[in-house]
């Protein structure tokens, strides 16, 4: 049998070792995702990329296809579930997009546009998460963290630094900075690190950039995220 599967009826070729989402992206198809980034080992935590493979729900960023597998992704049922996941992410943090430097370049927001999330639906948690502005070049706004672990993976696997880690469990999970003080300034973090450029939302923010590119002219203002499966985010 040849190495193809179908995604919403379209035939998608894949090579040995590729996951469903990798093959889909290579074929120019979009499956919603947040914790997946083609440059990193999958984490399989956000579940936005959930598809039905031969009738069973599975994370397409960790699942490898089989010849002839029937994969469904862009269905009402899956998109409704994805929208609920997004709504939970929005209410868990503090996402005030109008004052967020990442607005228009943010994958969480762009995915919510894509899936037509009109409201957060659930009650807001309004958590208290102080900002870390200790570093001279970067600030960390934890209010927007979705715990995707991309900065953790980048710092550990690419930069060899371990600046970031996820700590706590369940609803208490949060991102920490590996320094005795807990402050970014007391780490060897630098703007040249991969970790400085992987956050899909507006946590790891370069200072003094702000709204240099105005709202309305940013990456996902121009194209929906589904038309930019490898988002090259302006100014990131």
């Amino acid at each position: 049998m040849d190495n193809t599967f179908t995604l919403d009826g379209k035939s998608i070729p894949y090579s040995e070792g590729q996951t469903i989402i990798q093959a889909a992206i290579a074929a120019g198809e979009y499956i919603p995702h947040l914790c997946f980034n083609p440059e990193f080992k999958p984490h399989g935590s956000c579940k936005l990329c959930t598809v039905k493979a031969n009738g069973r729900q599975t994370a397409s960023c960790t699942q490898q296809p089989q010849p002839g597998m029937v994969v469904e992704s862009d269905t009402k049922e899956l998109n409704d579930e994805r929208r609920v996941l997004l709504q939970m992410l929005f209410v868990e943090g503090n996402h005030f997009c109008p004052s967020c430097e990442k607005s228009g370049n943010c994958q969480l927001q762009a995915t919510a546009y894509e899936l037509e999330m009109m409201s957060p639906h659930f009650d807001q948690f309004f958590p208290d998460r102080p900002v870390d502005a200790t570093h001279s070049e970067y600030l960390l706004d934890f209010n927007r963290c979705i715990l995707c672990s991309l900065c953790v993976r980048a710092s550990r696997d690419v930069d060899g630094k371990n600046v970031f880690a996820l700590s706590g469990r369940g609803i208490k999970s949060h991102l920490i900075v590996n320094a005795k003080s807990g402050n970014l300034v007391d780490t060897d973090f630098s703007g040249d690190d991969k970790a400085a450029h992987v956050c899909p939302v507006g946590v790891i923010i370069k200072k003094r950039v702000g709204f240099a590119i105005p709202i309305g002219r940013r990456t996902f203002d121009e194209h929906p995220i589904s038309a930019t499966p490898h988002p090259i985010v302006k100014g990131a």
Binding site: N94, H95, F96, P98, S99, Q124, F126
Partner: peptide, 14 residues
């Protein structure tokens, strides 16, 4: 935004 998630005024909530 304010009607939908509290918006700017809700930044007092913490």
């Amino acid at each position: 935004a304010c009607a939908i998630n509290g918006g700017l005024p809700a930044q007092r909530n913490h």
